[in-house]
Write a protein that binds this DNA or RNA. Structure first.
Lengths: 136, 136
DNA sequence: TTTTAATTTGCAACATTGTTGCAGATATCT
DNA sequence: AGATATCTGCAACAATGTTGCAAATTAAAA
């Protein structure tokens, strides 16, 4: 699917910034930070415009946000295999790469009585194959 | 354990800010934000001092940081039942309360071949019992 | 196609979370 | 008590995000 098709499908106006973000994100097969997206784009956009685009794309569940615990944020395409209610991502401690984990079985959590879980987010941290080999 | 005992056990200097943070966090039986801790403390500390205290306490795994996806951050005591490598927390969408989930069984994730997972972080989002009842 | 209406964009300002360097105040150790 | 290590406050800065307003762009209607 092209950026324009995606926007049309979700009844979103076709704007330069949204198209650009989607194009870059579809090309990259991993999650990207605001800065990585900005650098990959030819045309420049104000940061405000970026955040407004991210916001609507997230609301429509076209992309989603991943928060790593070093205060770094990345964004990734929510492909069909992702439902909006449970996500898992892998984060490489070494090269900082972030990948979506499409299929997984959720763990079992003992939440207090009467509590309802609506959605879940999992971050798996470790080393990717490349980084593991480079270190030896 | 008292704040002083905890600090001593981890070979940390007994400083006013560290003691204060630990005292408040031991009293609260939930995760707290920087602001919630600051308001509960009598004595005032510079924000820098706070963050430096958080940093050492996190390094020693006495407390840990929880990042919610609305850019809000909370800190919680890492009780013994928490190992440093896998954590789960519950977040109430309504009252914003955060609880640690002590015992749980991790899910199964299909990570690419050759990748190593060193630690995991899980956020379960939903409604706590109080908020669920209040809404009806 | 031209006009009108709705959206998007850029700028300025501000908020939160966090870090670094430096000097002065506290705590620890002998 | 004095020497040394550590902590604290201040100023400055960085990353991430939001809001209000006016100008530009896109979409819809005539």
């Amino acid at each position: 699917m092209t950026p324009i098709e995606i926007l049309h499908l979700h009844h979103l106006t076709r704007s330069a910034c949204r198209e650009g973000i989607l194009r870059i994100m579809l090309e990259a097969h991993q999650a990207l930070s605001e800065n990585e997206i900005k650098c990959s784009l030819q045309s420049e956009f104000d940061r405000t415009t970026f955040y407004r685009s991210f916001k609507v794309l997230i609301e429509k569940n076209i992309i989603h946000k991943i928060i790593l615990d070093n205060n770094k944020i990345k964004y990734a395409i929510s492909h069909g295999h992702f439902n909006a209610h449970s996500r898992a991502h892998f984060y490489c401690n070494h090269c900082k790469k972030v990948l979506c984990i499409p299929d997984f079985k959720m763990g079992q959590y003992q939440i207090p009585n009467g509590y309802d879980i609506l959605d879940t987010e999992v971050i798996l941290r470790g080393n990717c194959e490349q980084c593991k080999s480079n270190k030896s």
